[in-house]
Design a protein around this nucleic acid. Sequence first.
DNA 1: GTCTATAGATCGATAGAC
DNA 2: GTCTATCGATCTATAGAC
Lengths: 187, 187
Amino acid sequence: MPKVKTSKEEVLKKVIPILRSRGVQNSSMSELSKACGIQKSHFYYYFSNKEDLIREVLATVHSYFNYNLFKIIESNALSLNEKVLKMKLLLDKLFRASDGGCIMANTALETIHLDPTYKKEIQSFFKDFILGLQQLLEVHHSTEKALLLAEQMVQDIEGGILLTQIYDDPKYINNAMKRTETAILNL
Amino acid sequence: MPKVKTSKEEVLKKVIPILRSRGVQNSSMSELSKACGIQKSHFYYYFSNKEDLIREVLATVHSYFNYNLFKIIESNALSLNEKVLKMKLLLDKLFRASDGGCIMANTALETIHLDPTYKKEIQSFFKDFILGLQQLLEVHHSTEKALLLAEQMVQDIEGGILLTQIYDDPKYINNAMKRTETAILNL
DNA sequence: GTCTATAGATCGATAGAC
DNA sequence: GTCTATCGATCTATAGAC
């Protein structure tokens, strides 16, 4: 067998969509390494164990999310309308139900009661998600009202992702996004 | 060893809280049978395999939920206020975040992308959940508006359960319940 | 209680870049 | 040659199942 050249970044990129749609517990190290076209042992060269892999996956997703979300929100060149549109595109990319929904929510429900290993990262992710929405809502609402609305929107969106997955029907997440848009633009 | 007399109902009752909080994938047949104080082989006498067990668990939860929810909703003796109060108590019992949240949502996210085995039951559960809320909302809203609100409330509640579990803070589910109450009573 | 499959994990060997 | 990224093989524990 010829050796295959890879990198940790490449491996993470290939592995994230699988973990998102199959879930953490249902993805074995063998399966993941096979999907990357490398030996399992090589996987352990990159990640000392499965927990370590998942931790890196969640951190990668979180930092990608943060970078893009706050780039939009803090832009001076975009109108509020444009910010909302771009945010919707970002959320669709990260949360699309047909691709497994929100890996943070999935991992939370899969692991949080057994092992709080990933709790901090997940908490931090949702803190930023809520904060981002709050900042957009503060254009038309008071700080306190904006926070409460942001929390409600995150709940609505995550619940919408759940129902959309259960029924294979995008209307639930779409309705949640519409309500979010309405609240931000104060329509 | 003395023989232990059990029944399938007893086993289900003991097993449900474990599956709810640990999740389906993280609960082994050995662990579950041990928790019931019976031999693993006896478990396979009741349930032909793990899938069969989970199916019965979900059906049991669903029928318990349905029976109690619609008993409240269709009662002639209760005021709308009382119905809302009783429904909140039922939801708290079934969905309490400290006890593992909503077993239907948990199982959905754990399994739905691998294996649609439990999909029908979960779909049917949420259909009834939405329908129940819709009937309460129809007192003060049109049929279509009531359906849309009911879907929104279910999303809000399920998202609230998620955030409450992630942050160990009941405020998210409590806020969702308050919003639901407000919408039903038309305050 | 036992069987079989598969999970996570580790080890020693080596191809290939320098 | 050395170094290190990669491989093949294997260990141990535990899962579901009967």
